[in-house]
Design a binder for these strands. Structure first.
Lengths: 185, 185
DNA sequence: GTCTATATCAAGATAGAC
DNA sequence: GTCTATCTTGATATAGAC
């Protein structure tokens, strides 16, 4: 169903993610992306006429991935017996160990946040919606806020490469957040 | 006791903070800082030969401010009756409402993190030390981690302008974190 | 210690050929 | 839809006069 141009678009986004992973968010340039994608700058600019449009495409694909992960996780859990809270799904999808490359996408968005602040507006409203979902699911505002803040805190620290935690400590933290999510206070 | 050159240095750092506050981290350029400080680029470069040295000076002054705030707060609390935990001091100093301009210093450091990754090493080790201090003070690792992660999460979201909380909600959150800090689990 | 002038470089973006 | 070539801008950094 995908037209050829869609494939090119996707492969450009793949290349952009690769650049950020390998060279860092500050090296996400048209030159680097075009080179990685095997096309010229001119060809790249036909698909993404400016940098904001490329960043937006990267962010959109990231959001799509997260939303699909949540949908899948909720569907799996509808057949299980235990209560599966919104907060559990939230923590699990945000801190999934296979989130890999998307970590760097976030870094790229943040690094250019000053140039394209409208991209951050989306993040803010999605976060607000998360709080609504969690409190509607039975958590107090304070509990929901602490869980989501700690989750985003760990995610941001990892994105910014300032997390001091090793794998074992990280697992302990995720476990603690999940137990906070499962207990109705 | 301060030589004249020290005063110039300080006034340049003042100017750099002002630039970030007024124009954003991505506009922290030599041109803008020199202009704000009322000197030429050449004069500025005599004191800070490259951008990393300016960023380091900004970060050092921020760390000094935080350390002094904590020392003062601990001294005040030595005469009070209630237990004053490390974690309480940590939350209060990190989320103090008068942290004002230093919020933007953090944004500047993060925005140029890719250019000067060694600045982030300092942040990571300071964070690690905080965890040691908190657990030595009686908190479990999990509790200490959740408190510091939520604290840094809120701080980072505010620095990156993606926090969705209003003042009242923020106060509720700080209160919740302080109560988590005061209870030994 | 501060200045002007300039070198250097890389980025985003445009124009037009194929 | 992809290419080459070029424009413009803005940033770091250097050199040397005052």
């Amino acid at each position: 169903m995908a037209r050829h141009s869609d494939n090119t678009r996707e492969s450009i986004i793949d290349a952009a993610e690769q650049v950020v992973i390998e060279a860092g968010a500050s090296n996400l340039t048209f030159e680097a992306v075009a080179s990685k994608a095997g096309i010229s700058r001119g060809g790249l600019l036909h698909h993404f006429p400016d940098k904001a449009s490329l960043l937006k495409a990267m962010l959109d694909r990231f959001k799509k991935h997260i939303d699909e992960s949540r949908t899948k996780m909720k569907m799996r859990n509808e057949t299980s017996t235990g209560p599966e809270r919104e907060a559990v799904v939230y923590v699990k999808t945000c801190l999934a160990e296979d989130i890999g490359k998307y970590k760097y996408v976030t870094a790229a968005i943040l690094a250019s946040g000053a140039h394209s602040p409208e991209l951050l507006d989306t993040a803010r409203s999605r976060y607000r919606q998360t709080l609504v979902d969690l409190t509607r699911d039975g958590l107090s505002f304070e509990r929901a806020a602490v869980i989501t803040l700690a989750t985003q805190g760990l995610r941001l620290m990892e994105v910014l490469s300032v997390s001091p935690f090793n794998d074992g400590e990280r697992r302990k933290i995720v476990k603690e957040l999940l137990s906070l999510a499962e207990l109705i206070q």
